[in-house]
Simulated scan of single mutants.
Amino acid sequence: MRFRLPPALLAVAALLALPSPAFAWWEYGHETVAKIALSQIKPRTRASIEWLLKRQAVLETPSCPARTIEEASVWPDCIKTFGDRFSYQYSWHYQDPEICRPFDLTPFCKDGNCVSKQIERNQRLLADRKLPVRDRMMALAYLVHFVGDLHQPLHGAEHDLDQGGNKPKARYGRLPPRSLHTIWDGLLAERAISTPVGGAAGILAEVPAGDRSALAAGTVEEWSRESWGLARDLVYGTAQADPCAPADPNAKLDEATIERLVPAVRRQVAAGGLRLARLLDEALDGDHPEVAHPPRKKKG
């Protein structure tokens, strides 16, 4: 993620009686995705995760602990405060295909520096039991976090070089204008995740058990295309009538619009959790050795 909700904005939200158990997608969303995944993984996967989490001290980031999967889910954002030590990972949190052009990740994932390629890379690293514990612990935290990032549509698309919705502003209910990214990463996500029945159990319960495998299916690129499409149709398409037009300075999400968007956000959180569970099982359950190493390049 790229930004955190300012304390002043949190105070305004509280005054408006919006549910505010945490910092929305910034923390609340990631933790909820992680909790859903934890509830769905296989026993051997859980044992491997617990083994790694007990060794999280190898990260040498005491102010950014990863003692639980919830803490691990926000570790990649927490370490941004370390400056140069982890500055290389900034571009791993997002990718910016233009919503009004044909979907293509290639220009945005040079050398693997985008969220979808880092999901695939860190799954392979996590699965490789020959690697040092520190590398695999980092891979666990990154994998959990980046799957969450990909399911926030503005981490998977942009329009007119607006940095994933960080430039255009809109009103959210009665609040003053703020960036679309802040609304979707923060206020709307918090509202959706907190809507009764809130939290991981409440969101997961909305997905029938028989439908969960289908929701978890697909490739990371397919999930990227899905997020890109949601950005076009729901994010920009809700802020203004024509999502491909220049940003509307008077864009507003009224209460009725917010209520219509809540189910879509909740589905994204559920999908993120179920898909993360599948990726963790593939890496750690022992039945999917093909993810342990990246594909070998052909010689010649």
Rank of each mutant, 00 (worst) to 15 (best):
M1E: 03
F3Y: 13
R4C: 12
A8N: 11
L10S: 07
L10N: 07
A11R: 12
A13P: 00
A17E: 15
A17R: 15
P21I: 11
P21Y: 06
A24K: 07
W25G: 00
E31N: 04
A37P: 08
S39Y: 04
Q40V: 01
I41V: 13
I41H: 02
K42N: 05
P43L: 11
P43S: 08
R55S: 10
V58A: 02
P62R: 14
P65E: 03
A66K: 08
R67S: 08
E71K: 05
D77H: 04
I79C: 08
K80D: 09
K80T: 07
S87P: 04
Y94I: 12
Q95D: 03
P107Y: 05
F108G: 11
F108S: 02
D111Y: 15
G112F: 07
N113Q: 13
V115W: 04
V115N: 06
K117I: 00
Q118N: 04
Q118P: 05
E120Y: 03
E120K: 07
L126M: 04
R129L: 09
R134Q: 14
D135C: 00
R136A: 09
A139P: 07
L140W: 10
Y142V: 13
H145K: 13
F146W: 11
Q152G: 00
L154Y: 11
G165K: 11
K167I: 15
R178G: 12
S179L: 02
S179W: 08
L180P: 11
L187Y: 11
I193L: 14
T195S: 14
V197G: 14
V197F: 13
G198C: 05
A201Y: 05
A205H: 08
G210C: 00
D211I: 00
A217V: 04
T219G: 03
V220N: 01
V220C: 06
V220D: 01
E221I: 02
S224I: 00
R225D: 06
E226C: 00
W228Y: 01
G229N: 03
R232F: 13
G237N: 05
T238N: 12
D242L: 01
P243G: 03
P243H: 02
A245P: 09
P246T: 04
D248K: 11
P249L: 03
A251T: 10
K252E: 14
K252F: 14
L253K: 06
I258H: 04
L261D: 12
V262R: 01
R267A: 00
A271D: 05
G272W: 01
G272V: 01
A277F: 07
A283H: 03
P289Q: 09
P289N: 01
V291D: 09
V291R: 01
H293Y: 07
P295T: 10
R296V: 09
R296Q: 08
K297D: 14
K297V: 15
